[in-house]
Amino acid sequence: MASAADVSTASDQQVVEWACEGAEVAYRELVRRYQRPVFSLIYRMVRDRELAEDLTQETFVKVLNAIERYRPEFKFSSWIFKIANNAAIDQLRRRELDTLSLEGGPDATTPEQVEATSLQVGDVTESPLEEMEARELGSAIEQAIARLRPEYRACIIMRHVEGRSYDEIADALDLPLGTVKTYIHRARAELKQSLAPLKE
């Protein structure tokens, strides 16, 4: 059985193998490895922290409870991102949140709801001025991403924020490779257009 030290350096495939043998450390390692990217993707898609956390939890529970059905010829990350993306898209379809702005969702009527549906942009910078500029830029980018169509949004986040390959994105989002390239190309064009005023 694997130890905590072994799993932290092992490949995804190896960790999944240990998980299939029932090793709890392996399950925990998979959660640790993917909780941030999966949560970030879902959060940027649904823009509601509580909801994003619920969906992330559902994603992990679904993946880990079906770990024996994982096929090692595919990347584990593609599989988990596919389930995460499907969960987010289903939620967006149900609640029609895809036109939310960074300042909060259309359903947000109280200050609490506005706060819950606003993305919290990072604040790690050197000086107050830089912090303000970074926050402004970060907010502008998040807003621009939020305005993209959900499928463009998922593609661009996976490509540029998570650094995934085109093939992996195609696998994860169940899209043809050509469609992924088109979506990313269009998403870049839209983002550049949205961010152009900031350069002036």
Binding site: P37, E53, T56, Q120, G122, A134, H160, V161
Partner: peptide
């Protein structure tokens, strides 16, 4: 790339 990685 500089965007925040959110954590649950």
């Amino acid at each position: 790339e500089a965007l925040t990685q959110f954590s649950p």
